[in-house]
Design a protein around this nucleic acid. Structure first.
Lengths: 195, 195
DNA sequence: GTCTATAGAAAGATAGAC
DNA sequence: GTCTATCTTTCTATAGAC
């Protein structure tokens, strides 16, 4: 039987991550077999183990990479001093970034339970860092009298849940484009925090 | 080897559903085997097939039962005529009901993709009916001038995502009890819709 | 670096004894 | 109604050829 020849390591590695992310997001981590991933990439199952020690680590690497990118992008975002403008920046950033990697976002919220305890702790800490960034914005705005909040921690969780929900229904060819969705959500968040 | 005797069908059936729901919610549908469910119930794997034709149907029955209960409970809820009071009733109902069956809620949002197309359609229609109930409240309030909304459909999705998120972090022994959480979320929703 | 082949374990589901 | 036993398939992961 025919077999492929030559090195493809610079292509195969990224392709494994792309296909694994797509399949995990669509069917769930446990429902996807290494054979399915290999078939999507166009290699044999055994070849995957040149790039990952096991299936769980493959999932972890996907989540870790995503969270690192998320935090780096947030750090790179210009943050105005004004609490009002700062919150708007965060809201628009969150929607924009999450829509650009909806699959990874879905994984990050749904497949944490399939990680080993150690890997879980790592991802959880990164997620917490992201939440803390929003909470700090809310608390600073509250202290400055820009926002009226019953509870900054619950407002943080509520806002993130609300914004992340967009990835569940947004369609590129839908009724509203990304900018319009950003506008509408920012309007709701703005009112919710009493700004 | 010892074996159990006598009929337990009136006990075993419900127990299978309880344990399956618990295990599916904790580890994910695909990650849980029929043997695990059977072990949790205290029967052999083969005995499960007296109660369900297959694993996927077991999941479907759990989701269907949950959605039926949700819609029946919503119908049974007293709904004031005043839009403002009506929305408050919905918000408190949603949090209260979902906290009482957090596992089933999690399943309903996470494991839809493991249903057959036909079963998926059934559950999706029920979920849509629930969303429509909230959307109707928002649209009526908007028409009556009680709410100020950019988009009733997006407000529906945003509010449900925000409220459902509570099941992800609420702990019975946490900082806030259920009533306090209801109050805080209602305060945010109220402001977000411009009431 | 990728292949074929397979070891070894575990899955979903069924058959027939009790 | 539940058991034991098993069929058949599929899984993760590894070994060794090329």
């Amino acid at each position: 039987m025919a077999r492929k020849i030559g090195s493809q390591s610079q292509i195969t590695g990224p392709r494994i991550r792309v296909e694994a992310e797509r399949l995990f997001a669509r069917h769930g981590f446990a429902a996807v077999s290494m054979r399915q991933i290999a078939a999507a990439v166009g290699v044999q199952a055994g070849a995957l183990y040149l790039y990952t020690p096991d299936k769980e680590t493959l999932l972890f690497e996907l989540l870790k990479t995503h969270m690192d990118k998320l935090l780096a992008a947030l750090d790179a975002e210009p943050m105005p001093a004004d609490p009002h403008k700062k919150l708007e920046q965060f809201v628009r950033f969150h929607i924009r970034f999450n829509l650009n990697c909806a699959q990874a976002v879905f994984l990050s919220y749904m497949e944490l339970r399939n990680l080993s305890p150690q890997h879980f702790t790592t991802i959880e800490a990164l997620r917490r860092r992201y939440e803390d960034a929003l909470q700090a914005i809310l608390e600073q705005g509250q202290a400055a009298g820009a926002f009226v909040l019953s509870d900054a921690k619950l407002a943080t969780l509520a806002i993130i849940a609300m914004l992340t929900g967009v990835t569940g229904w947004f369609r590129e060819d839908g009724r509203l484009d990304r900018g319009a969705v950003e506008d509408i959500y920012w309007d709701m968040v703005r009112k919710a925090v009493g700004a």
